[in-house]
Computed example of a mutant assay.
Amino acid sequence: MYPDQSPRPALQDLRNRIRQLERGEQRVMRVLPFGLAAVDDRLPSGGLALGAVHEVAEGGDLGVIHAAAATLFVAGILSRMTGPVLWCLRASDLFAPALSQVGLNPNRVIYAEAPDEKTLPLLIEEGLRHRGLAAVVGELAKLPMVASRRMQIAAEHSGVTAIILRRWRSPAAAAAEVGQPTAAVTRWRVSARPSSPLPASGIGRRRWRVELVRCRGGGTGEWDMEGCDEEGRLGLLANLADGSSSRQGTLVEEPPRQAGLRIGA
């Protein structure tokens, strides 16, 4: 490099970050706590990092029940944020009443339907550049490392949180993608469990097995929980180690999806 030339912007930005780390200066991380110490203690700064990319997938055997649990888990997180949400998917099948039951007002959701799977990552990345959004949800079967890095950079610059809801159409597709590296800060798996037992006939509060399978700078864990309430908050079950209580309920998950229903503008 000649004396009259200045470093390229990317190189200069890297040097500035190194200097900040050497001086002990660190970016303050904005987080959204779950309000459960057992979970928040596994997450850096005590909550879900905002302005970052997170992955949520259905656990157990692929099926409508577990897919519904994963979707409602995401909706519960969004309900505790402030501002509009951009939800990017292939089919307009979100079920508004179920989202409302976990605190996500459908009027906050902007529906964005992509013509194909290849367009979805571009749509998500573009949404992450708009600072007026609280979050962007993207329903993806595949999440290449390059695409996830671009999303993470966009999320860091805008402060908008990205939640990638992994939706696989077959066990073979899921097996091919599970464990593949991405730039997501956290990875979650959510499975439906038998609902809370009631003293009379009927269906009690939904229960989930929530697994934190990866967390950058934090820990991992799995918990049996009561699903999100009308304010999007989870409840931790303390006495289900042997699974005896869970078998007294009914494995029914309210549908978060219905074909042909459009949400937002």
Rank of each mutant, 00 (worst) to 15 (best):
L94T: 02
F73E: 01
G127E: 08
R129F: 08
G60I: 05
L123F: 14
S92L: 05
N105Y: 08
R108D: 09
E113Y: 00
R80D: 12
E113P: 04
R42W: 03
E126L: 07
C88F: 10
D61F: 13
A52Y: 01
E55R: 00
R131S: 09
A114K: 03
L78M: 07
L120W: 00
L120R: 15
D41I: 05
V53E: 03
L120S: 04
G127M: 07
H130C: 12
V39C: 12
V64E: 15
L62Y: 10
H130D: 13
A69C: 11
Y111R: 13
A69E: 04
L120Q: 03
E58N: 05
K118W: 05
P106V: 10
G51E: 06
E55K: 01
G35P: 05
G51Y: 01
A57F: 01
G46Q: 08
Q101L: 14
R108W: 06
I77K: 00
R131D: 13
I77F: 12
E55N: 03
D93I: 08
T82A: 09
Q101E: 15
R42D: 10
I77W: 11
A52G: 09
G35V: 07
C88M: 06
L48P: 07
L128T: 06
P106A: 09
M81V: 08
A70N: 03
G51V: 06
H54W: 09
A75T: 04
A52I: 12
G76I: 05
D61K: 11
D41A: 11
N105I: 10
H130L: 05
L50A: 07
L50D: 12
P115V: 13
E126C: 02
G35D: 05
A91P: 01
R131V: 12
P115G: 11
A69F: 04
L99H: 01
V39Y: 09
A67H: 01
D41Q: 15
E126R: 14
G59M: 04
G76Q: 07
T71G: 07
V85Q: 00
G132S: 08
Q101R: 14
F73L: 04
P33C: 06
L89V: 05
N107L: 09
E58T: 02
E113I: 15
L128S: 04
P106M: 10
P121W: 02
A98Y: 03
T71R: 01
G46N: 00
G60R: 05
L48I: 14
R42N: 04
P106N: 06
A91S: 14
H54Y: 12
A114C: 10
L99S: 01
T82K: 12
N105Q: 11
A70H: 01
A91V: 10
M81R: 10
C88Q: 13
L50W: 10
A68S: 13
A49K: 03
A91N: 15
E117C: 06
A69I: 01
A98R: 07
A67Y: 00
G47R: 08
A67P: 02
S45P: 02
H130G: 06
W87N: 06
D61N: 11
G60K: 00
H54V: 03
V85S: 01
Y111W: 07
L122T: 14
